[in-house]
């Protein structure tokens, strides 16, 4: 018995250590910092301080810390952008994934390779490439004007549209791959069975294909949603830093406001909100697919 538990401990040791070092420990540090007093020049002072949260949620002393609803509105704005990114990625990827899954094996591999190609270069470089494409004298406007489709250059750069475009661009591979996995595994026979039983194509899609590919949809949505909420580079580069995202706010606390605890508190808040949103979405989706 004793011997067994020792062996079990040895077997589980590396996994525990891995999770502890790479997941739990950083999380604990953030959680701890979020309730400490900000040091004047960055870092923390080891005294309990709850106003990092109070500033966001509505209690503050009004002197050193002031409650401002702006933080929550920035959070909701970021959640909105992330949700929009998820939605657009989904709408774009679903039909394409379907199409790709029907290609001959060789072309499928080529396509999957192309989808992962952006990962080979830096995100920053790719975003600056978009900047060059979207700017008034850029490639897009050059083509549009040369073909006579527009008279004056379209103002896309430094607008919310550019931010959404950039986010969708960055996140599409993360949506595509899980979605493709699910659609590729889709049981064609079940689709045929549904049509055979008199369901129209739309009914078949809603009642059979969608529920069957739901794990892929949820997987893609989660993987896209999480980094989208915290993304600050895209709004900075393509949005001209005019709209503040929650990720900007966190970055700012560490890189210009020198307020680590507040940055940590904001991070904890993002994590909790994302967790709640995702759990709600997943449970709802699961429940819906069970009932008629």
């Amino acid at each position: 018995m004793r011997r067994q538990s020792v062996i079990l401990g040895l077997l589980l040791g590396p996994v525990t250590l891995f999770l502890g070092v790479f997941f739990l420990l950083p999380l604990l540090i953030i959680a701890l910092f979020s309730v400490l007093t900000p040091g004047l020049y960055g870092g923390v002072e080891w005294a309990f301080y709850h106003w990092n949260y109070g500033r966001v949620f509505g209690w503050a002393d009004g002197i050193t810390e002031i409650y401002e609803p702006v933080y929550l509105s920035i959070l909701f704005r970021s959640l909105g952008f992330a949700a929009m990114t998820v939605g657009i990625c989904l709408l774009l990827c679903y039909p394409v994934a379907f199409w790709v899954s029907r290609l001959p094996q060789r072309w499928r591999l080529v396509f999957l390779f192309l989808i992962t190609l952006p990962f080979f270069s830096s995100l920053i470089v790719r975003l600056y490439a978009w900047l060059l494409i979207l700017k008034p004298s850029g490639l897009l406007n050059g083509v549009l004007m040369a073909t006579g489709l527009v008279e004056a250059p379209l103002e896309i750069l430094y607008t919310p549209a550019a931010v959404v475009l950039g986010m969708v661009y960055v996140m599409i591979p993360f949506m595509f791959l899980p979605l493709y996995g699910a659609i590729d595994n889709l049981d064609r026979a079940q689709v045929e069975a549904s049509l055979d039983l008199g369901a129209t194509r739309v009914q078949t899609f809603v009642k059979v294909m969608l529920p069957q590919t739901l794990p892929g949809i949820m997987g893609g949505a989660v993987i896209v949603f999480i980094p989208s909420v915290g993304n600050f580079i895209v709004p900075d580069v393509l949005g001209g830093a005019k709209g503040l995202m929650i990720g900007n706010l966190v970055e700012q606390q560490f890189l210009s406001a020198r307020n680590w605890p507040f940055g940590a508190a904001l991070s904890m808040i993002i994590m909790s909100v994302v967790l709640v949103v995702l759990l709600t979405a997943v449970t709802r989706a699961r429940k819906r697919s069970d009932t008629r």
Binding site: D187, A189, Q190, E192, A193, S194, D196, L197, K207, V208, P211, Q212, L214, S289, D290
Partner: peptide, 13 residues
């Protein structure tokens, strides 16, 4: 016309 499929093709969900 309805079909009984070789793999049954029951809706797993």
């Amino acid at each position: 016309v309805n079909t009984v499929f070789q793999s049954y093709a029951l809706f797993g969900h």
